[in-house]
């Protein structure tokens, strides 16, 4: 076989090979960085989750699976037997629900926004993108505090509603589940809009006319043509919102007032006042496993739909 190759082909292949190796070396710094700072800490956490907690933080280098056991069970104070304790599970469940609601509402709000942006004249589009990214210019903590000022009992919103006479005494919004979801929505909406926009911007709007031409109504054109073609953007947007929303820390801390914990706060607690690093590590790993499993089913379902049509 090799003999059959012409000289030119051999040269071309050799050069190609050389280029490949050179490219590989170019990517080494990035690979190194990701390994050391991305995977390294994960390995460390994994190991910690199987160690014994030291009394004032840190770990004792002794193997145990206690962290995982105490995730679901509590030792009875009197006889030390394990009893099922769903406290952590409830927080996990609540976090999933909040993240799902956030993702769903972001999608419903983000799609029309992205559609609007993508159908502006090309010269205007970058301005719209810029506007969407304006919130990123200030710190998330500051923005969350701003929401707090808006929705608290003496805040702008209640003040306004009382002023126009819709209500006569403030509605309590702050430190509720509603406040948390509102904060999550506000924080993560741009992460939904931008990937949606980038897939809609590439969308060939002549396909809409083709749909109309073939007797599809506006609604049908949306569901049968625009949404399926924008699906990669929808998937990307949902992941970019769901995953960080699930692990959100600042928002529930400030807007939930510490009463309504989410996973992020729970884990932070173990490393702080809880002084139980192994438990915190285990909780982080359980979260990661749950996300990966959810992701697996999500991607399997949606990509299945893409290839088989309908």
């Amino acid at each position: 076989m090799a003999k059959a190759l012409s000289k030119a082909e051999q040269v071309a292949r050799a050069m190609e090979g050389q280029q490949m190796t050179r490219n590989r070396w170019l990517s080494m710094p990035a690979v190194l960085f990701i390994t050391v700072f991305g995977i390294g800490p994960l390995i460390l956490m994994f190991i910690y989750s199987f160690l014994v907690a030291a009394p004032y933080g840190g770990v004792v280098w002794k193997f145990t699976t206690d962290a995982y056991v105490y995730f679901l069970f509590q030792a009875d104070i009197f006889d030390g037997t394990l009893q099922f304790a769903p406290d952590f599970l409830i927080i996990y469940f609540r976090s999933f629900v909040f993240a799902l609601i956030t993702t769903g509402v972001c999608l419903v709000l983000g799609f029309p926004t992205a559609y609007f942006m993508a159908t502006r004249p090309p010269s205007q589009r970058n301005w719209w993108v810029l506007l969407i990214t304006i919130p990123f210019w200030s710190n998330l903590l500051v923005r969350t505090l701003a929401i707090m000022f808006i929705i608290r009992d003496q805040g702008l919103l209640n003040g306004f509603l009382i002023w126009i006479g819709v209500i006569d005494k403030p509605i309590t919004l702050l430190y509720t589940d509603f406040a948390i979801v509102l904060g999550l929505l506000y924080s993560y909406l741009p992460f939904m809009v931008l990937p949606l926009y980038s897939s809609l911007e590439k969308f060939d709007f002549r396909l809409v006319e083709a749909g109309f031409d073939l007797y599809a109504t506006r609604r049908r054109v949306l569901w049968r043509i625009i949404i399926p073609i924008a699906r990669p953007g929808i998937i990307a947007g949902c992941l970019l919102v769901f995953i960080p929303a699930l692990g959100a820390y600042v928002t529930p801390l400030i807007l939930g007032g510490g009463k309504h914990l989410m996973i992020g706060d729970l884990i932070a607690q173990q490393f702080g006042s809880g002084r139980n690093w192994p438990l915190g590590s285990a909780q982080a790993f359980i979260l990661m496993a749950a996300v990966l499993v959810a992701l697996y089913f999500y991607v399997r379902n949606t990509s299945g739909k893409v290839t088989h049509g309908h």
């Binding site: 060939d204 002549r206 396909l207 006319e209 083709a210 031409d213 599809a216 109504t217 073609i229």
Partner: peptide
């Protein structure tokens, strides 16, 4: 347009990229 008994062969073809040949024709 979706109520006119008129069909168009577009200059750009405008085939639906997420569908098969048969699904396009049957649309």
């Amino acid at each position: 347009p979706f109520k006119r008994p008129v069909n168009t062969v577009f200059q750009s073809y405008a085939l639906f990229p997420h569908m098969t040949v048969a699904q396009n024709i049957g649309f």
